[in-house]
Design a protein around this nucleic acid. Structure first.
Lengths: 110, 110
DNA sequence: CGGTATCCAACGTGATACTG
DNA sequence: CAGTATCACGTTGGATACCG
């Protein structure tokens, strides 16, 4: 018996948000402010980004650092726990690339 | 620049179905008939299982072998492409287990 | 036994408006 | 600049009924 499938669902629970993986990948290069993150992800809606960030926070993957300034400044960075996901995300990306090279990219034309 | 985040979404697209990862894990031990699969996954609905299987088929991860018998007999097994996902699923499970051991399992009480 | 067709509820994402 | 609140919408999984 290998590791139980239930744990896979746990992992998926954490990274399956539409933008979560992308956000995490952006953050591996260092902390980013909210506005910077938004600039890197032009497609994502303001509100959606906030929600996904909050969930990532609650899962302990990223850390939110708020500076008491005017105007407000907030930085997001990976926690060490978040960094432990890095190699997995990389492997997922690698498999995804392989998958596209093998399968007809019919369903992924977006 | 590491592998592009878009590829992660491809991978997630493939395995993020509510039961897909579980189904794939069941099939690594060998082919299973529809009814056997259903018996191993008591919670999943008849119809839902069919849908997920069909999607996995379309993604080329599993193969459907139908025997022209009465009563009907259908077997599902991993394709070689599906097997290439095995180590990734395993890593995801491993990380999920680690995650649960580190984080409060608040949101995963199901 | 295994599959199709159809409808419905739940969830996640995105849109709009407003606040400190 | 960053966040909250609320609502609208599409997608997905699940329920029911019926067919080969």
């Amino acid at each position: 018996m290998t590791t139980k499938p239930i744990y896979i669902k746990t992992t998926l629970d954490v990274v399956c948000g539409k933008w979560k993986a992308v956000i995490l990948m952006e953050l591996v290069n260092g902390p980013l402010r909210f506005a910077e993150l938004k600039r890197k992800l032009p497609q994502i809606h303001h509100q959606t980004l906030i929600k996904q960030l909050k969930e990532l926070q609650e899962d302990g993957l990223i850390e939110r650092k708020s500076y008491a300034e005017i105007p407000p400044k907030v930085e997001y960075k990976l926690t060490s726990h978040g960094e432990s996901l890095h190699h997995l995300l990389h492997d997922m990306a690698a498999w995804g690339e392989y998958h596209l090279s093998v399968q007809k990219p019919d369903r992924y034309s977006s």
